[in-house]
Amino acid sequence: MEGLDFSNKYVFPVHIGGEEFYITQSIISTWIVMAALIIFALVVRFSISRFKQVPKGFQNVVEIIGEVVNTFTISTMGERNKRFAAFYGSVFLFLLFSNLWGLLGMRPPTSDLATTFGLALMTFVMVQYYGIKTGGIKNYIKGFFEPLPFLLPLNVIGELATPVSLSFRLFGNIVAGVIIMGLIYAALPGLTKIGVPAVLHVYFDVFSGALQAFIFVMLSMIFVSNAIQE
């Protein structure tokens, strides 16, 4: 059964205020992805003064990313909510890099429920905040008693189910990919481990990973823009 353990392994413990916390594989992956994105952002920041009117090379890549994120935010949330492009663009880049992390044989940060649930909670808090801000606290509470007062429990459960389904969808897809790839690596004999799983990596890591990152960001945008319109 060796090699068939898919748990998120502990790497080393840290002691904070007498409590013992364990740093897991996915936390270290998260740090590396964060470091890569921060370095990318710093490189863009320091080279922005040398950007020219006619883009080429590195500037082209940066402009494409910015343009795609902006047009997508406008088409999903409307022209008024253009300011969300910065936040959801960062979330999308983080999720994309996290999901592609499995290609390097490391554990993707999104295969830890804490990562995905944290991101989904941000959307949840934003939905509640904008629901109260645009409609007022009175309309916000009234919304829970519609269409009929006795549906209050259902409405509350439906509201709480949003972050749960949002995070479980991403987590479930990525973890399923990790487990299936692990099983295949364990089942393939000898030298067939080189090359053969590449086809499945294209599906589980590249296709599924990019699609799930896209869907997570798109659903979050729709939830938040619905809360703003109400």
Binding site: F6, S7, S165, F168, R169, F171, G172, N173, V175, A176, I179, L211, F214, I215, M218, L219, I222
Partner: peptide
């Protein structure tokens, strides 16, 4: 785009089942 969004929502119940299975096994 609409198809992918609908698929993502339709997938939720299947993911819940998968989640239960993962918890039971691991």
């Amino acid at each position: 785009r609409t198809l992918l969004l609908g698929d993502a929502v339709a997938e939720t119940t299947g993911i819940y089942g998968l989640f239960i299975a993962i918890i039971l096994v691991f």
